[in-house]
Every structure is written in C-alpha cells, then in structure tokens.
C-alpha cells in the first residue's frame, strides 16, 4: 500500500462519527448602520494604504503622474492610459524582467469594507508577480464594488473562476525586528486606492 492509501485508511478508521457542517448565517454579523465607503476608507488606512477620489481613468493617471513625476518604468491596465505605459507586456518573456517596475496601476472588481482589502485575480493581473514586484501600486475601484464583509466577497467570487487571485490589503509590511512596523518588506512600498 502506498502512503496515499495508508494515510486515507488511517484517517478513515480514526475519525469520529460524522459531525454536521454548520451553515453560515451572515445576518448575525450585519451592522445596519455601517457606512460602507467610510468604513472601507478607514480600513485601507488602518492597513497602511491611502484612498483618494478620482473622477475618471484619465484623472487617475494625471494624479499618479503628479505623485510620481520622475519614474522610468510605469505600467497600467487602465483603458485611456495612453502615454503612461513605458513597457509592453507582450514583449516580456520572463516575469523577472519586471524587477525595475516603478508604478503599476490595476483595477479591482471587489473591495471589502471590513478589512480594506481589494481582490485582484488573473483577469486583472496580466502577470501574477506584477502587484508584488512593483515599487508602488495603485488600484482603481468603483464605489459600487465595495462589499461589507468577506462572506459577501466570496459570494461574488463564487460566480467567477480565477486560477489565481489575491485579497490585497495595504502595502507589504513587517514587524519582525523588535515589533517595529516597517512598510515595504518584499512587495509594494506604497498602495494608493482610487475610488471612482
């Protein structure tokens, strides 16, 4: 008998009698007075990001150019971002070539108010390493895309099938040296959320 069958047989004989799977009743978590947008903005700030309002994609690009005037390597997934992109992903053979990326702009279809995270999946990220390898990350999201809790986010996700996806909350961080919070461990050094 191989290890697979051995492990499964042992588990089968050692497990307790079947215990029912509890149903998730999300009504117990609901706070009727919750202001979704206010809560989302607050939580993005808690996790180390910042939120700014934007009227259009062109407005986003303009604000980014004002914030990062001298960056060399920029890439945006936005439509109407003419003149912003300095690299063409189609010519990239290997994700390692993205290592000098300065600013990346992506779009998210789900934001979660309770924790300030945004969902980014394969559809939104042409190369998986992009939101991690970039120095600065900006994510554009509409106010309609914000949900209150993770349960609602997963309900939305059940309608999609992503081969890879990430809930991303704030810039990368660590407190591994004497519990001092340092922003910018391996991933992005800053995160800006543009609320449309």
């Amino acid at each position: 008998m191989g290890s697979r069958d051995q492990i499964l047989a042992r588990i089968k004989s050692n497990k307790p009698e079947l215990i029912d799977l509890p149903q998730i009743d999300t009504s117990v978590f609901k706070d009727e007075d919750l202001d979704l947008i206010k809560e989302f903005i607050k939580k993005v700030e808690v996790v180390g990001g910042n939120v700014v309002e934007a009227t259009s994609n062109a407005d986003v690009i303009q604000q980014i150019k004002a914030n990062f005037p001298d960056t060399k390597n920029n890439f945006s997934q936005l439509k109407d971002a003419d003149g912003f992109n300095t690299l063409n992903l189609e010519t990239i053979q290997n994700p390692h070539e993205l290592k000098d990326l300065d600013v990346l702009v992506l779009e998210s279809k789900i934001g979660v108010a309770e924790n300030g995270s945004v969902w980014l999946a394969d559809d939104d990220i042409p190369v998986r390493v992009l939101p991690f390898i970039t120095k600065h990350l900006a994510v554009v999201i509409t106010k309609q895309a914000i949900v209150a809790y993770m349960h609602e986010a997963y309900k939305k996700l059940s309608e999609t099938k992503a081969d890879y996806g990430v809930f991303l909350a704030g810039p990368s961080k660590t407190a591994d040296i004497e519990q001092s919070l340092v922003i910018g461990a391996h991933g992005a050094l800053s995160l800006t959320i543009f609320l449309k």
Binding site: V47, V166, F167, A169, G170, S172
Partner: peptide, 9 residues
C-alpha cells in the same frame, strides 16, 4: 490586523 496584507488563492 483586520486581514493579512496578502491572502493569495
């Protein structure tokens, strides 16, 4: 924290 920075699926 309300969630880790990255929850990767």
């Amino acid at each position: 924290q309300p969630i880790t920075t990255y929850s990767s699926h």
